[in-house]
C-alpha cells in the first residue's frame, strides 16, 4: 500500500515538474519575441506615419474580371494557384500625403504601399503590377512633400480560402485596414486588410 502511494507521489511530482518546465519554455519564447502592435485604420481615419499620412476613404470588394473592366486593364493576367479558385480583389481608396524627401534608405512603408514588395496581406499580397496599372497617374508622377495623392490599393484574395461571413463583413461598411507594426525589424509596418 505504501509502495503504491510512493509511486503515485513520484508520478505527481514528475508531472508537476514537466508542467513547470513547459510553462517556462512557453514563457521564454513569448518573452523573447517582440510585441506586435496592430493599428487599425477604420474608414475615414487619418494616421500619420514617419513618412506618410494616410487617410482611408473607402473599400470595396470586386471580382477580378469586374475590376479589369472598370480600369480597362483586360491584359492583366493573374493565375490562381488552383483552377477552381475564384479571385476577388479588395480595392481600398486612400489618400496619401507625403511627409518626407525621397532617399535611398526609403522606409519600408513606402514600399508596402507602392506594392513593390509582397506583403503579408491575405494570401497573395498586393499585386505590384495591378497597383501600377490602376494607379498609373500616381506612380508616374513625382510626388512632392506636402502634396496628397489618391491611391487605390488592390489586394487579391482567393475566395475559396475565406469563410462566407468574412466576405460579408468585407462587403459591408466596417471594412478597415490594419497596419502591423513589428518592432523586430525596425518598425516595418505591413499592410493588411482584415
Amino acid at each position: 500500500m505504501k509502495a503504491c502511494t510512493n509511486k503515485k507521489i513520484i508520478i505527481v511530482i514528475i508531472c508537476f515538474i514537466a508542467v513547470v518546465l513547459y510553462a517556462v519554455a512557453v514563457y521564454r519564447v513569448n518573452k523573447n519575441t517582440p510585441v506586435v502592435e496592430y493599428k487599425t485604420i477604420e474608414k475615414g481615419d487619418e494616421v500619420t506615419y514617419k513618412n506618410y499620412t494616410i487617410k482611408v476613404i473607402d473599400s470595396k470588394v470586386y471580382d477580378l474580371s469586374e475590376l479589369k473592366k472598370i480600369y480597362g486593364i483586360e491584359d492583366y493576367e493573374y493565375k490562381a494557384p488552383l483552377e477552381d479558385e475564384h479571385v476577388k480583389c479588395i480595392l481600398t481608396h486612400m489618400v496619401i500625403t507625403k511627409n518626407y524627401e525621397w532617399t535611398n534608405d526609403m522606409d519600408y512603408e513606402y514600399s508596402a504601399i507602392n506594392g513593390e514588395v509582397s506583403t503579408s496581406t491575405w494570401s497573395n499580397g498586393i499585386e505590384g503590377d495591378l497597383f501600377y496599372l490602376i494607379n498609373s497617374d500616381y506612380t508616374a508622377s513625382e510626388d512632392k512633400v506636402g502634396e496628397s495623392y489618391d491611391v487605390m490599393v488592390p489586394v487579391l484574395a482567393l475566395d475559396i480560402h475565406y469563410p462566407e461571413k468574412m466576405w460579408n463583413d468585407l462587403l459591408g461598411v466596417p471594412t478597415y485596414i490594419v497596419y502591423e507594426y513589428n518592432k523586430e525589424f525596425g518598425g516595418i509596418p505591413r499592410l493588411m486588410i482584415n
Binding site: 519575441t33 475565406y162 490594419v178 493588411m192 482584415n194
Partner: peptide
C-alpha cells in the same frame, strides 16, 4: 508553443 510565440491566426496570413 515552446518554439513559436503566440500569434493569433488571422485571415491576412492566408491560414484557414
Amino acid at each position: 508553443f515552446t518554439y513559436r510565440p503566440y500569434i493569433a491566426p488571422t485571415p491576412a496570413s492566408g491560414e484557414v
